[in-house]
Design a protein around this nucleic acid. Structure first.
Lengths: 126, 126
DNA sequence: CTAGGCCTTCACGCCGACGTCAAGGCAAGC
DNA sequence: GCTTGCCTTGACGTCGGCGTGAAGGCCTAG
């Protein structure tokens, strides 16, 4: 499988796949003319990468998951290194959720106050 | 008040204040030598800006709040334009909270599964 | 033989709120 | 007059996950 085919099957671009390779995530053999030749298994790897990126992981965080998949495991998140990264990210996400929850409450409070002020002005006009 | 003093009193840097001015948020008179001379009221403006940035607003979103303060209101969020921005941002934040909540649940699920797999392996070894 | 459709590497663009350096003017104490 | 420390404008660097060319080689079909 060449890079264009893998890109299409994975729902992404050739540029993106080269980027992943550059960062040590995806691997490819080379044909005599220099073209990248991909194994069927790389499709799963790319899907794993995309799912983790969507969950907010950085490329460096993703490496252990890929290694875990390559080691023959059924999923990328069952190895100890992956679990460590999962735990760290979970704490980060929980922290962000707390922060954003506080922001949400603040916004709601300001909106409520603005509406209140408007009502007071309405009463004054009468 | 010169830029350095305002920066210190507002807990930020001179560069940041010039950035705010460049984007139409902060205003200053000029001395004969070209130095920026700030009014006392600008301190409140800068605090408002910082609070809104911390809540995830962009500089363009913040302009109506500053205008509202300058119009003599007790708070920057009581004017109609500010309220519109508040509402929009609240919807955004709620959306992000939903997304991140889903991510958190996914991470928890993967961690739980990883632990389960490890227990299965332990049982096999016995 | 040529057109166009793959592929390669190199390298800049993007977004946003600044940090940081460069080169210089201005004020004030010794 | 010299140093120190404020100020000015201008312009490039940061972070990350790519997008988007440019310039060129390879392969296939008509």
């Amino acid at each position: 499988m060449l890079i264009g085919e893998l890109a299409e099957r994975a729902g992404t671009s050739a540029r993106t796949l080269r980027y992943y390779e550059e960062h040590g995530l995806v691997e490819a053999d080379r044909d005599a003319n220099g073209y990248r030749r991909y194994d069927e298994g790389e499709l799963r790897v790319v899907h794993e990468i995309r799912a983790l990126l969507a969950a907010g992981f950085g490329v460096d965080d993703i490496r252990p998951f890929v290694a875990c998949l390559r080691a023959g495991n059924s999923a990328g998140h069952v190895c100890p290194d992956s679990v460590a990264v999962l735990r760290r990210r979970l704490r980060e996400v929980e922290g962000l959720l707390d922060q954003m929850g506080a922001v949400r409450d603040q916004l709601r409070g300001q909106l409520a106050q603005a509406i209140e002020e408007r009502e007071i002005r309405c009463l004054r006009i009468r």
